[in-house]
Nucleic acid binder design. Structure first.
Length: 294
DNA sequence: CCGAAAACCTGAACGC
DNA sequence: TGCGTTCAGGTTTTCG
């Protein structure tokens, strides 16, 4: 699924094909692709046609393309199955094409999205950031990202560590795959309370999140199926380097204990039950546990 | 404020 | 073969 490394791979791929071109035509093929553009498909098309495209930017899992001569950008979120594909004109359409942009150099951009959780919008830019991205925290690839400051914020949360690192308002870009990988590397159980972490542990888990995403980006991201490919249609190769995610029942690469999978919210967590021991139950409970008096 | 859960989708995989 | 169920997951919204 597209998390930070996959979205960054797409951003880099788009840079070569979009920057300096002009949008010559737009077709919205599915209404859900523009549901985050309240003014509707016709308005979105009108705001794009004739506009020049700048260099694609990204924060966390959000991607946007500045539109030249104005303070607006084409904003995209890939959701769980979104893709951008650069194709030659006339190519038979992939069945899940949700929007098509024609460019001044003759190339065509497809926005493909099987599950339609992703979408496009044109939004005003404020300090270079689209309005829908303003509430998203910096991601670990941002020059201004401060690991120590974020670690302290994480420790002040009163929740479980996996929930915290998936919170896009604390640190952005981490999804279920890289959360499980960062926790495995950190030897931390996903349900460990953030309040009980040392400063070093909080620092470590965020550092591992940054590192594992850096390594994934270097090989084009993680692809399990055709739901994530780059703009040329190629898969990433990081799935072969995963230690926890998708490895239920397989031996832990550190200790050989079978990797376990447990329900987490409405998804799942995979971890090594030996390297990442569960927190003692008492630490999960509220402070006051006095029985009520009749 | 906090967190749990539902809602939004499609298609693959699975059980009977 | 075919039908129904489950699962996957990012974000927003709703509810307690």
């Amino acid at each position: 699924m597209p998390e930070l490394p996959e979205v960054e791979s797409v951003r880099r791929g788009l840079t070569d094909h979009l920057s300096g071109r002009t949008v010559t035509a737009v077709e919205i093929c599915h209404p859900r692709a523009v549901r985050r553009h309240p003014a509707g498909a016709a308005d979105l098309s009108a705001r794009l046609v004739g506009r020049g495209l700048g260099e694609p930017a990204r924060r966390g899992k959000y991607l946007w393309v500045p539109l030249v001569d104005d303070d607006e950008a084409l904003v995209a979120h890939l959701g769980m199955s979104g893709q951008f594909r650069i194709v030659d004109p006339g190519r038979p359409r992939h069945p899940h094409v949700r929007a098509v942009l024609a460019l001044s150099d003759g190339q065509v951009v497809w926005f493909v999205d099987q599950r339609t959780f992703g979408g496009l919008a044109v939004e005003p830019l404020r300090d270079g950031v689209p309005s829908s991205v303003a509430h998203i925290a910096l991601d670990p690839f941002d020059d201004r990202f401060d690991l120590a400051v974020t670690a302290d914020r994480l420790r002040r949360r009163r929740t479980e560590v996996k929930r915290a690192i998936l919170d896009q308002t604390l640190v952005s870009g981490v999804g279920n795959i890289y959360a499980d990988e960062a926790l495995w590397r950190s030897r931390l159980h996903p349900r460990r309370p953030t309040g009980g972490l040392t400063r070093a542990q909080a620092h470590t888990v965020l550092g591992h999140a940054r590192d594992v995403m850096t390594e994934a980006l270097a090989v084009g991201g993680t692809s399990f199926d055709a739901l994530y490919v780059n703009v040329n249609g190629d898969s990433g190769y990081f799935s072969r380097s995963l230690n926890a995610y998708g490895r239920e029942g397989e031996p832990c690469d550190r200790c050989g204990t079978p990797i376990r999978r447990e329900a987490f919210a409405n998804r799942s967590s995979t971890f090594c039950p030996r390297c990442q021991p569960a927190p003692r139950r008492s630490r999960r409970l509220p402070v006051a546990q006095t029985a009520p008096i009749e």
